[in-house]
Simulated assay, not measured.
Amino acid sequence: MGGETDWLWVRLLDVPRALVTRGWFADGELVLDVDDPALGEHGRYLLTVRDREASCVPTDREPDLSLDVSDLGSLYLGGTAPSTLVRAGRVRARHPEVAALADTLFRADRSPHCLHWF
């Protein structure tokens, strides 16, 4: 038996807190419209990154990216580029430049890796 298996998942329960505590490598600003159908929650957040520090607050601004919390988990880990999920139809981008900015913001210095399955 061969092939690849996906063993590493993350589900963000507190989106603003998770994004504020994540490591960031570029400055920028995005409005994320996040849907969590399992918990029946929906939120729109302004993510601002300056000098490797992030703030994430609720906002009424138009979203740059609209996505499910499961897709946000993939972006959070840094193993999947936002533009990949946009092309796959999983994430909606307000305009093409937003996907490029999101790629820059959500990049990681290392790909996620899980040594053990659980």
Rank of each mutant, 00 (worst) to 15 (best):
R107P: 02
A102Q: 10
V15R: 02
Y76D: 10
D51F: 02
W9V: 06
A102T: 04
W24P: 05
V69T: 12
H42P: 13
L77F: 07
H42C: 03
S111P: 07
V57F: 03
W7Y: 05
Y76V: 04
L72M: 09
T104N: 07
T59W: 06
E4R: 09
L72E: 02
M1E: 09
M1S: 09
H113K: 00
M1Y: 06
D27E: 11
T5P: 01
D64H: 14
L12N: 02
T84Y: 12
V98A: 13
R107F: 01
V57D: 14
W24N: 05
Y76R: 05
A88Y: 04
Y45N: 01
V91I: 15
L72W: 12
G2M: 09
G73R: 08
V57A: 13
P112L: 01
L8Y: 03
D60K: 11
R61T: 02
D35I: 04
D27A: 08
R110C: 04
T104K: 13
H113R: 01
A99N: 08
V15M: 03
D51G: 07
A26M: 00
H42D: 08
T84I: 05
E4Y: 03
G89S: 11
R90E: 14
D71N: 12
L101T: 15
Y45V: 03
F25S: 08
V86D: 05
S111T: 05
R52W: 12
V49M: 11
S66Y: 00
R17M: 03
H116E: 13
R44E: 01
T104A: 13
R110S: 12
V34R: 01
E53T: 12
V10I: 15
L12H: 07
P82K: 01
E62K: 08
R107M: 13
L12F: 12
S111D: 11
A26Q: 08
R50K: 06
A102H: 07
G79A: 00
E62D: 15
F118Y: 12
V57E: 15
W24A: 08
P58T: 11
L77N: 04
D103P: 05
T48V: 11
S83Q: 07
D64F: 01
H116D: 10
L72N: 06
P82H: 03
L75G: 11
L65V: 04
G73Y: 14
A93N: 06
A38W: 01
L13C: 00
S55R: 15
R52V: 07
T5Y: 01
P58C: 03
